[in-house]
């Protein structure tokens, strides 16, 4: 029997925070558990087979996670699994009502806003980089050699695809969180 399940780019199909939480919860219900979240977890996640459990996971993106933040969640019974990029992953086992970390409209919206903000930041960076390269290619082609030109075109295309993907994700989360 398989005892390990490896998932690459777990965020790719589940960019909306609540989709990601529900997916982790479903995995736990099927007996697939992850006990630590690390920086690399956004690229690859390893689940270990165990008994099925009812876990509530919470996805909380924060630039600053100080000790007050950790302590407040722990007082409420949440277990900090770790942090990947700026996303904190929390977990709590439950039997009755499904526990929530965000309980009013304002903080639910705030959580989604922080996520969209972080993505728009990388969106703007990649967009600016691809525009900068395009400007060089279009207006100053004489300062670069033919060899460099192909490299720059390739870089601009990759960055533009990245920017377009991030832009689409941004709009998707924004639309979904308004529902």
């Amino acid at each position: 029997m398989k005892t390990k399940k490896i998932v690459f780019f777990p965020f790719f199909k589940r960019v909306v925070p609540s989709d990601f939480e529900n997916w982790l919860e479903k995995m736990a219900a099927d007996g697939w558990h992850i006990d630590r979240v690390r920086q690399g977890s956004s690229l690859i996640m390893v689940f270990i087979k165990g008994l099925p459990k009812r876990y509530r996971y919470v996805y909380d993106l924060r630039a600053i996670a100080n000790k007050d933040y950790i302590s407040t969640y722990e007082q409420f019974g949440w277990q900090h699994l770790g942090k990947m990029a700026s996303v904190n992953i929390w977990r709590m086992e439950y039997s009755g009502n499904r526990p929530e970390a965000f309980t009013d409209k304002e903080s639910i919206r705030g959580r989604n806003k922080r996520t969209v903000f972080a993505i728009s930041f990388s969106f703007i960076l990649t967009l600016l980089a691809s525009i900068a390269i395009s400007i060089v290619l279009i207006f100053f082609p004489f300062i670069i050699s033919a060899d460099e030109k192909t490299q720059l075109i390739a870089a601009a295309v990759v960055l533009a695809i990245f920017a377009a993907t991030l832009g689409a994700i941004m709009i998707y989360i924004h639309k979904r969180s308004r529902q």
């Binding site: 007050d68 007082q75 409420f76 526990p99 929530e100 970390a101 965000f102």
Partner: peptide, 14 residues
């Protein structure tokens, strides 16, 4: 009626 979550409490307190 109102059961506050950890994230909501932390946000409001800060």
């Amino acid at each position: 009626r109102i059961i506050l979550g950890a994230g909501t409490v932390y946000n409001s307190l800060s």
